[in-house]
Design a protein around this nucleic acid. Sequence first.
RNA 1: CGGGAUGUGGCGCAGUCCGGUAGCGCACCUGGUUUGGGACCAGGGGGUCCCAGGUUCGAAUCCUGGUAUCCCGACCA
Length: 494
Amino acid sequence: MSKGLPKRSEDYSLWYNELVKRADLAENSAVRGCMVIKPYGYAIWEKMQATLDEMFKDTGHSNAYFPLFIPKSYLSKEADHVEGFAKECAVVTHYRLKNDENGNGVVVDPDAKLEEELIVRPTSETVIWNSYKNWIQSYRDLPLLINQWANVVRWEMRTRLFLRTAEFLWQEGHTAHATRQEAIDETVQMMNVYATFAEEYLALPVLKGVKTESERFAGAEDTYCIEALMQDGKALQAGTSHFLGQNFAKAFDVKFANKEGGAMEYVWGTSWGVSTRLMGALIMAHSDDNGLVLPPKLAPFQVVIVPIFRSEEQLAEISEVANKIKADLKKFGISVKYDDRDTHKPGWKFAEYELKGTPVRIAIGPKDLENGTVEVARRDLLEKNVMPMDDDFAQNISVLLDNIQDTIYQKALKYREEHSFKADSYDEFKKIISSEAGGFVYAHWDGTAETEEKIKNETKATIRCIPIDQVEEEGKCVYSGAPSKGRVVFAKAY
RNA sequence: CGGGAUGUGGCGCAGUCCGGUAGCGCACCUGGUUUGGGACCAGGGGGUCCCAGGUUCGAAUCCUGGUAUCCCGACCA
């Protein structure tokens, strides 16, 4: 039992905030809205990065890096884009400080005012398309498939660790294509990459869909997304992939000579991203009142070995066994931490690794040495078993880790299924949305922004997406009664 | 940016109404006993009580003005 971790059922937000801090993932920084990602939290992010990066490379993308600062004028080149981001941009106006004449430390030097102010990127479409203008001349230069790992800044009014911070880490893919269809295919492909990553690594089932006009990325023609359900019944947008049409090509005059006689055409663009928000998704989807529950594929270490000993001699004997186990597991690609510190007691360590979500804990004590066994505990189900230390041991642990990964996923899937509902009247709709349990509500919608807006104002629920696998079905909008050809997904969202 | 709350050793808090030598728990350090689910005993170190003014013989406490953080709304990945 972790000492005083708040209960999810009592205060979900408090539980989340405390868990992030106590599990040593991140903490608030001196700067409002920003966070310090601590080594344990960053290790998880690094695993996400490594996996995603490989998936991007496998689909033909290359990494590059574009600058943090964007000339203010760039942002205004695409009308919707500036509209969407203007209100949350940090702006650099000066480039020098000087000593205050009254001895109050340093002050901004008014003589060092920038000719053109720079904004700290909230996203990089504009700088990148400004470069693409020079990189693309002919159909031979296409497709251009670039990704960058970067930080961005959005001056948010209200922030929460990982879920919404003023500065966050992410990757942003930016591609350019010769045809509309190719760009759409790319957009869909990357949504699918995200969905695969979420399901296979985060152990998090997601809905794939398209955003409505009002939820769409500023400057996109279509925004595809993956939406996940958290344990408090609220939806979390876990990744987005945008079909940009020719909007940025036109704004930055990016044209190519086509294959058919060299006529100049505007290129078609996409952009797509996932951020450190995925950390929030990971935490909120699986963890319990005892602490973090990490899927083995993303845990900084998958197995921890805790020795139980009284004397130095005993520790030496146990260490011999522990190190052999560690080596054996390593051969199966399993990452292991052997915690032989004598500064903390076993019970303390058990609680600690439970809080930090280590998938498997192996305890070895004197009794085990006698019996040729070890105690194996799995974090997800909080079950303990005594296992024989035989030739199959490493193999068995490997199977166990796979089983944990799958069990966590199935549990999340079951939760989502139990919290997915159909509503055919507005009363029914409101009842589900306002319930404690929350969840996804599939309902007919007349397709208008007005209705969407009214539902949002009245219930706080928004359309998370129009599912990609939406079934055709005649129906009536739950709000207006106007005809509809399929259900969309509503939920309260982060 | 509106409404509310809170700033006191590293962390969590009491003390503030009613001004009078700054306290508790955790963590930390030392010694000893302990070690199969967050050990115990003894001793010890650590604070410009958010900042700046003011009232007072005397301010963590009262007054004025800042500022920061958190929660609730509007906005957002």
